[in-house]
Design a binder for these strands. Structure first.
Lengths: 235, 235
DNA sequence: CCCCTTGTTTGCGTTTTCGCAAAGTGCAGG
DNA sequence: CCTGCACTTTGCGAAAACGCAAACAAGGGG
């Protein structure tokens, strides 16, 4: 895939939190070194265990980042949304990618050579702070999920996961908020640490209560308040 | 508690990974702004929800960082070991501390005003990279725990947690490797997302198998290989 | 030195969730 | 239009872990 395949829309990038308060000149210099790349649905940006040769920014589309455990079980680490930085293994002092990034829909990413990372960070203090906040938020999310996994039963965890997806990747439709990329019950199970079967049972039950509408690789939140009550039954 | 209470041993700090490759002058300048503080056993460095006024480095001792969920359950986020940076809420773009840091044993911390964070990061690119790696490793650890929580049954999770503690905070003794600070079954339960009762049962069972030796707020790993076999039953 | 608080052990019934199995069903490609 | 794969649903028995309850230490404070 060649750089020419896609043009980088700098104006689109300028407004990302990651580049906030960066000097236009520095940003332009940075973008000049970037390589855009189109990834077909189901295609890989990088694979778990591969040498981390580049870090990326998702411009358009949606990625699922998964890890496979030594004993063969799969876990979904996170969903990458447009504007997110990902694959920054260097920042974790790792030589390889800890997970696999797969395009849930046709996506456009821009990549930089991983060797640039340190220099980029050293020469762009403002970017360094922003990148740190990005990683910090990632850490915060991980802690949130850990807290949920530690203290909440499966139903609440799944409700939280679905609500988060709707918020981050929802598209308003007549019936409600539709998750804007193909997602399977298996995916949701891998996000919440449960099984395909349990997720299916829950969604069926919710559907009969009019909270959601399901379908093959589809999910629409019909009654977000109702779901939120399941997720957080205080009141 | 006054700064005079404790003297900062700069030579001790110089070798920390966090300050690696930093210019001595910059390090000296940094340490000049630091406030050392002694924390008694059971004392708090900061409390969940409080305004994040400072970030810290643990020089000596051991801290437990916990969070309380809205419905009152407690989770142990992590154990802070000497040399660890903690309480860097600013890096997460948070105005408050997400957890409570309590001294498991008498500890010595040094703190910097949180307002210094951005300047420190901007003016010390080398430190910025190191700090990012620190946060990155924290993220890695969180993902490891998430993976464990998602895919492993309780016994394996507890075994992993105990082995990690022994590695990070173990002191060699005649009987084996002793966890070097007071730790309760409840603590271990909060680290692994289970209950006090289940942990107690497991440790009892392991003790009868000669893998560990327990006691009130005490834990000694007698047979690390045996425990590792429980943690990772491949082979 | 004793008492009381805090932590630990253990039994038992109950609940949640899993795991297996088998039967539907939507959709893409031929 | 047909066919097959991938995804989904659902039932049922089994297992893991929880939650309650109650008894039992250990060690610090009076």
């Amino acid at each position: 895939m060649k750089a020419q395949d896609v043009a980088i829309d700098v104006s689109q990038v300028r407004n990302l939190p990651l580049f906030r308060q960066m000097e236009p000149a520095a940003l332009a210099r940075l973008m000049a070194r970037a390589t855009p790349r189109r990834v077909a649905q189901g295609g890989l940006v990088f694979e778990q265990g591969a040498e981390a040769v580049a870090f990326y920014l998702l411009l358009h589309g949606r990625l699922k980042v998964t890890q496979v455990t030594p004993d063969g079980q799969q876990v979904m680490v996170r969903v990458v949304h447009p504007g997110d930085l990902f694959g920054f293994a260097r920042a974790l002092a790792r030589p390889d990618y800890p997970g696999t990034a797969r395009a849930a829909v046709e996506s456009i990413v821009v990549g930089w050579p991983m060797a640039d990372w340190d220099a980029v960070v050293e020469n762009n203090p403002r970017l360094a702070i922003n990148a740190m906040q990005t990683i910090g938020q990632r850490l915060d999310e991980a802690h949130t999920r850990l807290r949920e996994m530690s203290t909440q039963e499966v139903e609440r965890r799944v409700a939280h996961a679905v609500l988060r997806l709707a918020e981050k990747a929802g598209r308003i439709e007549a019936a409600g908020t539709r998750i804007d990329f193909p997602i399977t019950r298996q995916d949701i199970a891998e996000m919440t640490g449960t099984t395909l079967h349990t997720v299916s049972r829950l969604l069926s039950s919710w559907e009969s209560q009019g909270l959601v509408e399901g379908g093959r690789q589809k999910l629409t939140v019909v009654d977000a308040e109702g779901l939120a009550r399941i997720a957080d039954p205080e009141d």
